[in-house]
Amino acid sequence: MLEINHVYKTFNKGTVNEKKALTDLNLKLEDEDFVTVIGGNGAGKSTMLNMVAGVYPIDAGKIMIDGTDVSLMPEYKRAHFMGRVFQDPMMGTAAGMEIQENLSMALRRGKRRGLRWGITKQERERYYEELKRLGLGLEERMSSKVGLLSGGQRQALTLLMATLQKPRLLLLDEHTAALDPRTAKKVLDLTKEIVEEQKLTALMVTHNMKDAIQIGNRLIMMHDGHIIYDVKGEEKKNLQVADLLAKFEAASGEEFANDRMLLS
């Protein structure tokens, strides 16, 4: 359903800060693929997600979603296809607005916004039920400002918002990295639950190798702006962290020492 063909992206081209973020990136996702993405710092994981989401324009190549070429489509239009959760818990929610208002924005993702009421009574009832399953007690605080919530609460809310209206593609950019271990686990469990339940196609960037192996049906490793390792099914299930480290070492050579901390 998602096809990334020969995509290139260089930041700050022609300056001393030139950074080749993506070089000849190719990836094809099938429906209901749940792909974990690993790789060292600067491997291009987040850039890949941002390119798919349309945050920056690509330099060359093509990105197709369900056969539609979205390469030149602006971010807000591509939102029609995808739900996103970011590394920074502050990014996915509007602090100055109420919990229910944030949800109502999310429910209208990819739809035309007109002069109808921004939030209706039936919606509120649905939000109550949806918030209840997060188990954070947010359903009783629906008219509280999101700015009052903790990072973990905001991240759980963002996840709910991203999937409130079933997305064709769910993009998770290290969405548990900024959370404490317990909260991270909770958000991760919730992610698995929602992806399974809604049978979503998802790309999840993570720095946790164990998570990367355990979660999803497919794993890709990135290095220097492209994919260097791609496994799925049985082969992926039988992977060990040591295998990944070896793979990583083979690919990145001397940089290994720098990235080991982040990958183990």
Binding site: T93, G96, M97, N102, M105, R108, R109, G114, G118
Partner: peptide, 23 residues
Amino acid sequence: GTEIGSAIRATGSNEHMVRSLGA
């Protein structure tokens, strides 16, 4: 209170989010 009005308010609060939600 309308959909467009909410989107304008949200833009002032977090425009990144607003784009990611399709406005």
